[in-house]
Structures are given as C-alpha cells and as structure tokens.
Amino acid sequence: MSVIEIENVSFTYHGDKRALDNVSLSIEKGEWVSILGHNGSGKSTLSKLIVGLLKPQSGTIRVDGITLSASTVRDIRKRVGIVFQNPDNQFVGVTVRDDIAFGLENLQIERPEMIERIEHYAKKVDMYPYLNKEPHALSGGQKQRVAIAGILAMKTDVIIFDEATAMLDPEGRERVMEFMRTLNREGTTIIPITHEMKEAVMSDRIVVLKDGKVLKADKSENILKDKETLERSNLELLLPLEIMHYMNENGIDNPSLKEFLWQLSLNG
C-alpha cells in the first residue's frame, strides 16, 4: 500500500521558473526512498509540498489515502514529520525537554502521556541525560537528534530528512544515519532528501530529480551504478563504483575485486 502518492504535481515559486514540473511518484509503507538531486533540483520543494507547507499549483498529493487540502493538512502533519537541515532553526523549545514537548503540546496530548513519551524518545535517541540542557550547550548532531525525538514522539508514520545531515560533522552524520536504519527496521517510512550519494546507498529505492523533473526512479543498486543518469544530474559516483566503471570501460575483468568494490560502496 502506498503511503505517499504524488500525481502530476507542479509548483512555481512566485515569479520564478518551475521548481517542480509534473512530478509523479509513490512511496510504499515501510520503504526507504532517497530523493537525490543537486541544488535547485526541486527536492526541498517536494518535501515542503508533502507536509503542506507549500501548495501545489496543480496535481494531487495523497498521504495514507488522504488527499492534501487546507482541511486535511493537520491530519497529514500527524502522519508525516520532517527533520530540516539547520539544527538551530528547528529548535523551538528553551530546553531539550521543551522542544520534544512542542509537537505533543500542539497535538493536545495529555500531560502524563506527554512526559512518558518525552522520556521514552529521549532515551531512544540517547539524549536522556540532556533533557534539561539548553540548545546552545548542544552540538549540531545532538540538536538534530532532539529534532528526531520530537518527531518520533509525535508517532508519525513517515519521516522526511531534508538534508538533515548536511550541517553535521562526520560523527553526527553517522549517528543520524544509524537512526534512519533503526527506524526503518521498526517500520517507519524513511525519505532522506539529499545530494550526498553516501546517504542514499542504504535506501531501497532512489528517485533522481533534475530541474524539477523525475529523471529516474529505480532500485538503489541500479541507480548507484548508473553513471550516465548521475552525471546528467550533476551528482558524483561513489569512488568504489567509479573504479568499477573504469574497470568495465577498459575491459579489466576481476569479479572478486568488483564484488569487493560493490560491498565497499554499500557500507558507505
């Protein structure tokens, strides 16, 4: 069953050129689908459209079978959460506890339940000891984990990571990736939006966007090897796969090395 269905969606920013042009795609429940694209490919616009922060000029978006409109936007936001790029600009509360509580307060969760969920999800993202800390005492990765806890506490089915690791150091990025893996295993639909190939390797499927259009959507292993598509959308091949291409082009045949390179690229 598709959890997100996007049909012929187009969007133009005020007086600008088309950010999204007739985009259609569907994402299955529990799937891990990376949306890959270079700057200006419209990938962030797409994420904002899905949660109703922007309104498409044409086309329909359905989440869990509910068609997005002004009257259903609140229901849809209960189902889809977004972790944004800048850790500082999405930290609403004065402390970690307040920030995780923010979404729950909005959903009008009763206080005892709220406290329970805050503690549970703070533990889950390893931020329990920091519950009373203020944001400027935290690192970017820690803030991003708080943002994840804030969304998990709202119990959404789908989490979009809109370039959520772009501003983090390698360690912080690795932690966030780890949470994506765990959450996906537990049944959450994960949609990372990124221009980093490394972040897309673990996904089930990859959708490549270019200039507001879907260039290609396929299983990750096919996209990862598809040099032509990636080059057309200004994305870089992972280094081990680059070597593999070189081997193919020059007729170097070494199946065990190829297998090794493939495994290497899958492990980031």
Partner: peptide, 27 residues
C-alpha cells in the same frame, strides 16, 4: 529573517497552528 522563515516552517510542520488550543508540559 531566514532563521524565522525556517523556524516558522519547522513549527508548522510540527502541527503548530497559532491560536489553537494546546496542552502544556509545564504547569
């Protein structure tokens, strides 16, 4: 201004609607 724009998006995405009743963590 960029920050407040981002923050407004983040707040809205987490179901904040100005003027709507909310429960409160702090009593």
């Amino acid at each position: 201004f960029q920050r407040s724009d981002d923050l407004a998006n983040a707040m809205e995405a987490r179901s904040f609607v100005p003027g709507q009743p909310r429960t409160r963590l702090h009593v």
